[in-house]
Design a binder for these strands. Structure first.
Lengths: 208, 208
DNA sequence: GTCACTATTTATAATAT
DNA sequence: TATATTATAAATAGTGA
């Protein structure tokens, strides 16, 4: 559409390219919005301008699990995983990598104190079984319930989910509204266009 | 566009709605693709059909930052992390959750074999340094002592918070994670020791 | 860079097959 | 229900202020 048919390849002229991007971006956002309204569906759009700027759209109002959020989660999980691995290395050190007696002594110390903890609890249990006198402290212990830090919500794609899972601290990841300014501006323009050119309400993009 | 102008509201007729969805979805995907080509940008699109089916598009052939892929990575990492946590529980069991002597014996066994590995490597080091004998047989028996109960399914979410269910694999002992203070302090000391005493890069903790 | 204009292409709603 | 057709609405390429 337009005065001439554009060949389907990268527009070399940077000015035209940027101009085309701006127009078509608006067009796609508008269509995405229309689709979400007409068909009552969730639509999410993410794109980068030729200059690298990110724009995203989500018909759900709630921002989508966009790349930044997911990358963020990945980072955090990676860090956590590395921590666990490091910890495990103390218990399961690669023998080949131990290069000094001092080092192995450290590992040994580590395991020794771990084993002592076990023996302590074993002794306690034996004491409870054979000499029923210190029962009261055990009762109290049984109720201790800790949050499981390993539980991370299922990540399967599902329309009910919409990225509301949390990390182990329970703090949700930047889920506030965050449509980019350029997008909102585009919306405004678009709404003006619509208002001027048609009879139907301009409610379309006002998810917020 | 079309024979008549469509009012911008949800299409009530389910058949028309589905039909419109199919057409417009294709249209948007086409436009997204065109935009990515003409303007040399990354575009990602995610939408749900009225029946709940997911469709997504990413202009980057390598769909790395596509949500699905990130979700996928998250899934895998989560599984790995859960594995590590499960393993760690054998070394750092929550003493309060150990309810039988038999159980504590299991933990003790793990720690004992771990400590034996250390002692072996220590002996090897000492042997190399002082008494060169009985060194060769230790090579390469680094780990692999616990059965890798990695068969945690995608959908499994930790729901069994209460102590000792008899899962035959023994993996879901389901004790809450518990970084004991003494453990953390020991780590800190260890780091200090390592940093002070050796040239090799500090092996753990606070890598990030 | 932005906006408006408009000739032209493209998308698609209704319809037919 | 899926696919093809076609009349019409909508998007937009080029242009100029």
């Amino acid at each position: 559409m337009g005065r001439k048919k554009l060949p389907m390849r990268r527009i070399e002229n940077p000015t035209s390219r940027q101009a085309t991007y701006a127009k078509r971006k608006d067009g796609i956002f508008k269509k995405a919005n229309e689709l979400s309204i007409l068909c009552d569906t969730d639509v999410a759009l993410i794109m980068f301008s030729p200059t690298g700027r990110l724009t995203s759209f989500s018909s759900t109002g709630r921002p989508i699990n966009n790349e930044e959020d997911l990358e963020d989660k990945l980072d955090k999980l990676n860090r956590k995983q590395r921590e666990s691995q490091d910890k495990l290395r103390y218990y399961e050190p690669n023998a080949d990598k131990i290069t000094s007696v001092l080092e192995s002594g450290v590992y040994q110390h580590f395991l020794t104190s771990a084993i002592q903890r076990i023996q302590l609890s074993k002794a306690k249990l034996l004491g409870n079984q054979l000499v029923p006198e210190t029962t009261e402290n055990v009762e109290g212990n049984t109720t201790v319930q800790m949050e499981d830090t390993t539980s991370v919500t299922d990540q399967s794609i599902d329309r009910n989910k919409n990225g509301m899972d949390e990390d182990e601290s329970g703090k949700s990841l930047s889920m506030g509204p965050h449509l980019s300014l350029s997008f909102i501006e585009a919306q405004r323009k678009l709404n003006n266009q619509l208002a001027a050119s048609s009879d139907h309400s301009t409610s379309s993009f006002n998810n917020y």
